[in-house]
Design a protein around this nucleic acid. Structure first.
Lengths: 219, 219, 219, 219
DNA sequence: AATGAATGAGCTTTCATTCAT
DNA sequence: GATGAATGAAAGCTCATTCAT
């Protein structure tokens, strides 16, 4: 909240309020989209959950698709900028991957609906034209791949890892982490405290890193 | 076809015809569900593609959900029985995984829509109550996990692999393979022959096995 | 009805029935559009009046605009073909105008809603994109003007009428007749029998012809 | 403006300001109604164009209908009073008609939106209850007809014109002039200067008078 | 058994009107 | 007085399901 106020100092009170309300709607909508998907989420659901009238939503967004796209754009944007930070900070590939996984653990714990939406993204893209055409998302994919590949190539050069096909590893990592974490979330969903969930995620993260780098074979 | 006739010897001609028509509908529907998702597929689409009237579909299935659920049930059933076969045949975990991946490569190549539906399954489950409640699917998950775990535990006992948490590996494997193969399919979608696709899948399969067992670290 | 059957001999029973239902809907819709205008006519109104469900209308027409456009297209088409007939039959301009007015009187009496829709056409065009873009309507305007102008030019050549600007007369005639007849219809709307209405229209038609050709000045 | 001040001398400053703002709104709204029609004009459009808030409009008018009705009332009032003036000034019917047409030419040129609204009036009346019930409009129609008829009857008595049915001529004139002028406006809409438009209107007016009084037949 | 015309509940979206500020 | 955010009734349209043929 303080960050929000800081960032938007130069706006009028009205404008800030408007932004805050947009946030609220996006937040509520993200939760719904995350659990029910795009088609499963009715505009009325968003209205009710955000405690606005149906019509009011249209004062803040052009239509349902736009709400969805804006959420996805924000999420991918955030994720990309974090990726860049971690990329700069880390030296070895192993460090990079470890830190990224730490971030993802945090991410899943803090904003589960964002996580779920990213998880669904590939599937939903088919149904939502504007998502398919979103420049932000296209850019995110391209940039993220670039960062990963440069890290891998460097690691190969530095003899940190074997000579592998960078593309393969990028795909593998991307497809592994998100669904893996998701499984953790849903498998033990009911009987678990928030704390335990986090512990499980951390453990899962460690397992992923260990397996990717050393394999499971007896050495 | 011969297998079908063999299996249903004891049925009357009418009954066999009825079953065959059900198959046709399920086949066509699977293709549509696979590419467009449950909500994106209209009953009219299925009717057109299967060259039946819309009303006719209701002579074979209670409703749209039922068609979906039956497809998923069949796919998971098939997959589970194959899993059992491979489990019996294979000695080491590595063998088991390798053979399973070979099967999956084949599976993706031969029945892509079944593959795509399994891929979507987790997401669609939220939207389709009957899928969530399907006993077949629940059983599939339980049995598959059981097979995997026993294989892993055996491998640990035989010192084939390190002492890992079997649950973790099951999840990792499951979440890795399907999305990974999917990425292969869509990434190079346009410029590739069927043959090349298969080659890519085989290569991807090898990479997965290699990484899982040996990791990517320089040895 | 007999004409309809004759025309569509080669169609199947189903196809004929479908066409008949389309007619019914168009007929009912024309009545509503004629009195309430495009915006004032709700789809539900058409559904109720035609005794179909809302959804059924969409089995026959793409959307509300399409219903409107098809009606207008049919009306202008009919009117144009009649115009051509009269043009061929008549020798002098006076004959042409007289016969045309006779036809219009008939037209107003027989299909009042068609008449009213033509009357509104210019105004509605602004609101309905498909009407504005309709080739049928454009063609109708061009052809009708052409016919009128050639008749006038001939009359001038034959010294039947003074040297007037043909464009002016076309506009004058077009803008005069329809609103004039409309006034007749609404002015005495309530207290009049159908027969009397027709008599009034005939009288009005005579007055128009007399005035246009001879003026009202004392000779 | 001076006239306005003069007329409302006895009002307080506040009251005068209020009236002026009402004028502004009406003026802007008339423009919109004239081009887009009643349904096509959104209250928001009027608010934006008049540079008032949407809510403010409701301080000056009860609702959208009222704005429309007041505009129409004013226009018909003005037109009626001018009609009376011209009626008094003119001696023969021909003079009366000529002067009236001169006035209409001016009217079209000066306040096109008023002209367009009058043109649409008959059609819009069906949709807007308050217009249908407006006493001002009813009175306008009655009075205007009265003036015309007395002029015509006088002309007949003075042997200026043939013995015609006054009602017929009133209707004819009313329905002729407005749509005719409208055609002039839209037909040459794009390629013409304001000056040329006026010239065209004058010419059209002359043609109308000539035709009405002398007809087009060769003498 | 096969059909597809008919249906209406349910969806997204619009917009005149209200009302707290 | 002035405002525009909030509202929800009402609109057009979709589509799973029914049912007479």
């Amino acid at each position: 909240m303080l960050i929000f106020l800081e960032k938007n100092k130069n706006l009028t009170r009205k404008e800030r309020e408007r932004l805050l309300k947009r946030f609220e709607i996006l937040d509520v909508a993200a939760n719904l989209f995350a659990t029910k998907g795009f088609d499963g989420t009715k505009l009325e659901d968003i209205a009710e959950a955000s405690e606005f009238g149906k019509g009011t939503l249209y004062n803040y967004f052009e239509n349902k698709e736009d709400i969805y796209v804006e959420i996805i754009n924000r999420i991918t944007d955030d994720y990309l900028s974090e990726l860049k930070k971690i990329s700069t900070k880390s030296k070895t590939l192993c460090e990079f991957i470890s830190q990224l996984i730490d971030y993802l653990v945090e991410f899943v714990a803090v904003d589960r609906s964002a996580f779920l939406m990213l998880l669904r993204l590939r599937t939903e893209m088919n149904a939502i034209e504007k998502v398919r055409k979103s420049k932000v998302i296209k850019n995110y994919r391209i940039e993220a791949t670039k960062i990963f590949k440069s890290k891998i190539n460097l690691a190969i050069k530095n003899k940190e890892i074997e000579k592998i096909n960078p593309d393969h590893f990028v795909i593998l990592f991307r497809n592994l982490t998100f669904p893996y974490f998701h499984s953790i979330l849903i498998m033990k969903n009911k009987s678990r405290s928030v704390l335990q969930t986090k512990k499980d995620l951390v453990e899962a993260g460690n397992f992923i890193v260990a397996t990717l780098f050393n394999g499971i074979s007896k050495r």
